[in-house]
Nucleic acid binder design. Structure first.
Length: 945
RNA sequence: GCGCUUGUGGCGAAAUUGGUAGACGCGCCAGACUUAGGAUCUGGUGUCGCAAGACGUGUAGGUUCGAGUCCUAUCAGGCGCACCA
C-alpha cells in the first residue's frame, strides 16, 4: 500500500487538535518533566528549515518522556516585542501590533504542520497586556528591593529604611551604586526627596546616571550584550558613550550567585565558560595611595599586589573624578585638551585604533611601602567603570603598562628573577621575586618579598596591606548592571510616573499599564522617545487612571515614563508564566510553581549566552528570593542546537551572453557564477524550465548541458533571502511530509553542531518511512499477525530499543535514525509480521515520526493515542544470545576479546583464535591450549607458552 | 593575547569509550524491471596495486601486544571574551 503522507498527516493533525492530546495539567500522580524551547521572535520572513531544528529535538525528548510515564509540559509562545516590527512600522505606518499579529499567525500555521506536541492553551506573548502585567509587576518588586550580602538575598526596601533610621549606613553590607557614609541623624534630617535619592543607591531597579551605549541611528540606548565590536548588534550602526539617566537593574549584586550557580546546572562547558568570562570574577587588592604635598588619597585595584615595588607611574581613567582634583594648574591646559580629544573618540575608534595616548596630571602619588614619589598620568586605556578607575602601573609585568612606559619614556623595573623585559613585559604569574625592594632600600616595617614565588608574594602583600589598614582584599566583577531603558515604542511601558523629578510606581492593583497609542513611532521633535508622541500619557493619582497630557498641570496628574523596557524584560521569566499562564492574581500560583519547579530541558541557540541566559538567571534568582519561583536556577539542563546554514546553488553564465554552462563544462568558458533559487534545483540538477520562468531576463536562456542535465555548483553560506538558499519547511512537508522532515533534520548530524541544509539526502529518510509503512501491509491490506515472532526479530527489536533509548537520553538522535533503518531492513528480510514486534516498533518511532506512528497505532486497533502508550523496555536476554564474547588471555590476564555468533562451534572459535595467535606479534611463542565456549557467556581462550 | 571547541572517504557522518576504522544516508558505478522516470529493486564503492598485499582518522613524536580514541608538541578551522589592571 502506498505511503500517503499528506493524507495521514492531515488526519492525525486534526485528531490531535480535536482530542486536545497535548493539553497538560499539573497531576500529582505523575512525575513532572518540563521541556522548553527558546521562544521565537515572529519575524516577517516566516520560518525557514533551520528554525525547527531545536523544536524537533526537544519534541522528541518531550514525547519520549511522556511515553515513559512523565507528565510533560512542552509549551510555546512568542517573544513579540522587538525592533524589526517597530522599524517596519516607521517605514509603512502599519501598527507593530498588526504586523506582529500577522507574523504570529503565519508562524503558527507553519509550526502546526510539523507535528509538535506543544500545549497551545498555554501560549504566551510578551506584548499581551495579561503577560506584561507581570513583567511590570516584577520591575516594581525590583524597585522595592535591595540586595543584602549578609542575608545573601534581596530584601524589601522597608528593611533598609529601618536600618538607616536606626544606625545610618553603619554595618550595612549591601549592593550599592556608591559607598555612602550617613549617620541615623543625618538620614532622619533629610527631606522626603533626599531620602528617595539615597534609596536609589540601593534599589535593584534604579534610575542611574551612567555611561551608556547610545546608538544615534536607532535613537536608543543599548545593553552591553547588544553592542558588538562597537556597533549595534541589530543594524550595525555606530554606538557612542553618553552620560544619561536610565533605568538600570542591579545584576551585579547577583554576580557571585550567578557564578556559583553554574556549578549546579547541566550546561555545556563552553557556555558556562562564556558566562564565567562575562561575569569576570577577579580577586585582588584595593590599595590606598596618598598624593604628595596634599591630603588627597585615592584607591586603586590590583590583582598583582606583589608588584608594588615595580610601580613607576599611576594612571587615572579620563572620566575619573580624581582627574579634576589632582591636575596641577601647570598641566591643566594639556589635560583639558586630552580629555576633549578622548571624549570625541567612539567606542569603535578606541577598539580599532589602539595607539598609546595619555597626559601627565602634574601630581605625584606616594608609594606607601617605600615613600617614593610616583607620577600620576591620565590615559584612556584605564576604564572608569572597572575597579576604581585608577591603577598602579607596573610596566615590567603588564603589557599595557609596558607599552605606555615605552611610549612616554618611563622607567621599567623588573621584579622577577631571569625575566627579560628589554623587548616586552613579563606577564606570567610565575617565577621568583627580586628587587622587592631593591638592595639597600628602606621599606615600611622592613617589608620584603624577595625570594618568594609570585603566589606567596601576592598573599603576603595582601595580608600586610590589611594588617596595616592600607587597603583591603577585594573581589571585583566585570559584570555590569543592565541598562533597562530603551527609547522605543514597541516594548513594555514602565509603570512609572514622575513627581518632583522623582519616579513613583503606579499601584500594583492598577497594573497592567497599557502601551498607549501614538501618532507616529519616531522620536519627538524635542528628541524624546516615541511615547512622547502619545496624547494620553499622564497618571492621575486621584483616580489612578491614565489621562490626557493636557491635564498635567493639575495637582494630581503627573507625566509617565517615556522609555520602554528592553527585549530581555519579557523573555526573562516567560518559562514561569507557562506554568500558570492564565492566572490573573499572580505571576504564577504557588501550587503551579511547586509542581513544575523549573525547566528540566531547555533548548536554544548559544548566541544568548551573555544576554538572555544571564538575565533570565538573574531574574529567576530575584523571584526566588521573593518566594515566587521555587527554584534558584531556571534551566536545569541546556542543549544548544547548532545553526542550519544554507546550501546555495550557482549557475554559470558565459560572459556577455544569456547562455549557461553546466558545472562540469564551465572550465572551457569564461563564466560568472550566479546564485540560483535552490527551490528550482533538485540534487544539484537545475529545472531549466523553472529557471526560465524564475525571472524575466532568463526567459530566453540557453543551456549547455552535460549528459542531458544542467548541474549546478554549490557553496555553504548563511541561510538568507539574498543568497536564494532559504528552504521553507512548508515545501518539504508538502513533498515528503513532516515525519520525513523531522527524521531528516535529526539525521543531518549531531544536534549541537552547525551544519548546512542539504535537500539531497532527504530521499533516504523518505524511502525509510515507505519501507516501514510496507512492513505493516501485505499488498494493499493491513496485515499483522498475533503469532509469536521469530527470535531473530525479537533480537532486532530489543537491539533497537536499547540503542534508541540510549540515544534519546544522550541527545544523539542522528545515530538513532540509522538504527531504525537497519532494524526495518532486518525485519523486512525476516518477513516479520508479528504484532509483538511491530507494535513496540511503532512506539519507538512515535517521538521521531509521530504522524505515521499514530496512524499505524490506530490501524493496529488502538483507540487511544500512541502518545499515551508505554515505552518498551529492553530485555537483555535477546541481545546476548546471538553472540559470544571471548576473552583471550595469556599469563592469566585478559588481553583482548572476540565476538562470535552464538552458533559458532568451539572449533570455529579455536580457528579464529589461532589466526589471532599467528598474526599478533605478541603471541609469539604462545599456543592455544583450551577454548571454553558456552553460548551467552563470556568464555576464554587460554594461551600458554 | 586568554578561554572553549572541532579536525575521519567525493559529501553529511558512525565507531559499544583502548580492540575488525568508515555503520547508516547521499552521491557515484554496474545490473534487473520498465509504460524511459528525478520511480522501484539488487550488487559494488577509503587510497595505491593485475594480484598477493601495502597504506590510511590534520602533522610529528610517545605510552601500549593493540591508538580515531590516552599523553606531549605542532598546524588549521569555528565560537566566546578582549586595554577588566
Amino acid at each position: 500500500m502506498e505511503y500517503n503522507h499528506q493524507e495521514i498527516e492531515a488526519r492525525q493533525r486534526k485528531a490531535w487538535a480535536a482530542q486536545g492530546t497535548y493539553r497538560v495539567t499539573a497531576r500529582e500522580d505523575k512525575p513532572k518533566y518540563y521541556v522548553l524551547n527558546m521562544f521565537p521572535y515572529p519575524s516577517g520572513a516566516g520560518l525557514h528549515v533551520g528554525h525547527p531544528l531545536g523544536y524537533i529535538a526537544s519534541d522528541i525528548y518531550a514525547r519520549y518522556k511522556r511515553l515513559q510515564g512523565y507528565n510533560v509540559l512542552n509549551p510555546m509562545g512568542y517573544d513579540a516585542y522587538g525592533l524589526p516590527a517597530e522599524q517596519y512600522a516607521i517605514q509603512t505606518g502599519q501598527h507593530p501590533a498588526v504586523t506582529t499579529e500577522k507574523n504570529i499567525a503565519r508562524y503558527r500555521e507553519q509550526l502546526d504542520k510539523i507535528g509538535f506536541s506543544f500545549d497551545w492553551s498555554r501560549e504566551v506573548r510578551t506584548c499581551d497586556p495579561q503577560y506584561y502585567h507581570w513583567t511590570q509587576w516584577t520591575f516594581e518588586q525590583m524597585f522595592g528591593s535591595y540586595y543584602c550580602y549578609d542575608a545573601g538575598k534581596a530584601k524589601p526596601i522597608a528593611d533598609l529604611v529601618r536600618h538607616l533610621e536606626a544606625q545610618g549606613t553603619a554595618g550595612l553590607h549591601v549592593a550599592e551604586s556608591e559607598s555612602l557614609d550617613l549617620t541615623a541623624e543625618q538620614w532622619r534630617a533629610m527631606s522626603e526627596t533626599e531620602q528617595q535619592q539615597v534609596l536609589m543607591n540601593y534599589r535593584l531597579a534604579y534610575l542611574g546616571e551612567t555611561m551608556v551605549n547610545w546608538c544615534p541611528k536607532l535613537g536608543t540606548v543599548l545593553a552591553n550584550d547588544e553592542v558588538v565590536d562597537g556597533v549595534s548588534e541589530r543594524g550595525g550602526y555606530p554606538v557612542v558613550q553618553k552620560r544619561m539617566k536610565q533605568w538600570c537593574l542591579r545584576v551585579s549584586a547577583y554576580a557571585q550567585r550567578l557564578l556559583d550557580g553554574l556549578d549546579t546546572i547541566d550546561w555545556s562547558d563552553s557556555i558556562k565558560e562564556t558566562q564565567r568570562n562575562w561575569i569576570g570574577r577577579s580577586e585582588g587588592t584595593e590599595m590606598q595611595f596618598s598624593v604628595k604635598d596634599s591630603d588627597v588619597k585615592f584607591t586603586i585595584f590590583t590583582t598583582r599586589a606583589d608588584t608594588i615595588f615595580g610601580v613607576t607611574f599611576m594612571v587615572l581613567a579620563p572620566e575619573s573624578e580624581l582627574v579634576a582634583t589632582l591636575t596641577t594648574p601647570e598641566q591643566k591646559a594639556a589635560v583639558d585638551a586630552y580629555l576633549e580629544a578622548t571624549k570625541k573618540r567612539t567606542e569603535r575608534e578606541r577598539i580599532a585604533d589602539r595607539r598609546v595616548t595619555g597626559v601627565f596630571s602634574g601630581a605625584y602619588a606616594v608609594n606607601p611601602f617605600t615613600g617614593d614619589a610616583i607620577p600620576v598620568w591620565i590615559s584612556d586605556y584605564v576604564l572608569s567603570g572597572y575597579g576604581t578607575g585608577a591603577i598602579m602601573a607596573v610596566p615590567a609585568h603588564d603589557s599595557r603598562d609596558y607599552a605606555f612606559a615605552k611610549h612616554f619614556g618611563l622607567p621599567i623595573i623588573p621584579l622577577v628573577e631571569g625575566a627579560d623585559v628589554s623587548e616586552q613585559s613579563f606577564d606570567a604569574k610565575e617565577g621568583i621575586v627580586m628587587n622587592s625592594p631593591a638592595a639597600g632600600k628602606q621599606t615600611l616595617d622592613g617589608f620584603t618579598l624577595n625570594g618568594l614565588t609570585i603566589k606567596e608574594a601576592i598573599a603576603r602583600t595582601k595580608a600586610f596591606v590589611e594588617a596595616h589598614h592600607m587597603g583591603r582584599v577585594k573581589v571585583n566583577y566585570r559584570l555590569r548592571d543592565a541598562i533597562f531603558s530603551r527609547q522605543r515604542y514597541w516594548g513594555e511601558p514602565f509603570p512609572v510616573y514622575y513627581k518632583d523629578g522623582m519616579p513613583h510606581m503606579i499601584p500594583e492593583t492598577c497594573l497592567p499599564l497599557l502601551l498607549p497609542e501614538v501618532s507616529k513611532f519616531l522620536p519627538t521633535e524635542s528628541g524624546e522617545p516615541p511615547l512622547g508622541n502619545a496624547e494620553c500619557w499622564a497618571w492621575d493619582t486621584k483616580t489612578n487612571k491614565v489621562v490626557s497630557n493636557t491635564l498635567i498641570d493639575h495637582q494630581s496628574v503627573f507625566p509617565l515614563e517615556l522609555s520602554t523596557m528592553p527585549g530581555f524584560a519579557g523573555s526573562s521569566a516567560y518559562y514561569l508564566r507557562y506554568m500558570d499562564p492564565h492566572n490573573d492574581a499572580a505571576l504564577i500560583g504557588s501550587d503551579a510553581a511547586a509542581y513544575w519547579q523549573s525547566v528540566d530541558l531547555y533548548v536554544g541557540g548559544s548566541e544568548h549566552a551573555t544576554g538572555h541566559l544571564i538575565y533570565s538567571r538573574f531574574w529567576d534568582k530575584f523571584l526566588y528570593d521573593l518566594g515566587v519561583s521555587h527554584s534558584d536556577e531556571p534551566f536545569r539542563k541546556l542543549v544548544n542546537q547548532g545553526m542550519i546554514q544554507g546550501r546555495s546553488n550557482f549557475v554559470y553564465r558565459i560572459k556577455d551572453t544569456n547562455t549557461f554552462v553546466s558545472l562540469g563544462l564551465k572550465q572551457q568558458y569564461d563564466t560568472t557564477p550566479i546564485h540560483v533559487d535552490v527551490n528550482i534545483v533538485s540534487g544539484d540538477v537545475l529545472d531549466v524550465e523553472a529557471f526560465r520562468q524564475w525571472r524575466p531576463e532568463y526567459k530566453d536562456a540557453e543551456f549547455i548541458l552535460e549528459d542531458g542535465k544542467y548541474v549546478c555548483g554549490w557553496a555553504v553560506e548563511k541561510m538568507s533571502k539574498s543568497m536564494y538558499n532559504v528552504v521553507n519547511p512548508d515545501l518539504i512537508v508538502e513533498k515528503y511530509g513532516a515525519d520525513t522532515l523531522r527524521l531528516y533534520e535529526m539525521f543531518l548530524g549531531p544536534i549541537s553542531q552547525s551544519k548546512p541544509w542539504d535537500s539531497n539526502g532527504i530521499d533516504g529518510c523518505y524511502r525509510f518511512l515507505k519501507k516501514l509503512w510496507n512492513l505493516y501491509f501485505s499488498g494493499d491490506t493491513f496485515a499483522i499477525s498475533d503469532d509469536a515472532p521469530k527470535k531473530e526479530s525479537l533480537t532486532t527489536l530489543h537491539k533497537l530499543i536499547k540503542k534508541v533509548t540510549e540515544d534519546i537520553e544522550a541527545f544523539s538522535y542522528n545515530t538513532s535514525v540509522p538504527a531504525f533503518m537497519i532494524a526495518v531492513g532486518e525485519l523486512q528480510q525476516q518477513k516479520c509480521v508479528s504484532r509483538a514486534v511491530l507494535e513496540p516498533l511503532a512506539v519507538l518511532l512515535a517521538p521521531f515520526a509521530p504522524h505515521i506512528a499514530e496512524e499505524l497505532w490506530h490501524r493496529m486497533g488502538h483507540t487511544d493515542s500512541i502518545c499515551d502508550a508505554q515505552w518498551p523496555k529492553c530485555d537483555e536476554q535477546y541481545l546476548v544470545a546471538d553472540s559470544v564474547t571471548v576473552g583471550v588471555q595469556f599469563n592469566g590476564k585478559t588481553r583482548f576479546t572476540l565476538d562470535f555468533p552464538a552458533d559458532a562451534t568451539a572449533q570455529q572459535m579455536q580457528d579464529i583464535a589461532l589466526a589471532a595467535e599467528q598474526t599478533a606479534k605478541y603471541t609469539e611463542g604462545f599456543k592455544v591450549v583450551k577454548v571454553i565456549a558456552v553460548p551467552g557467556r563470556i568464555v576464554n581462550i587460554v594461551l600458554k607458552k
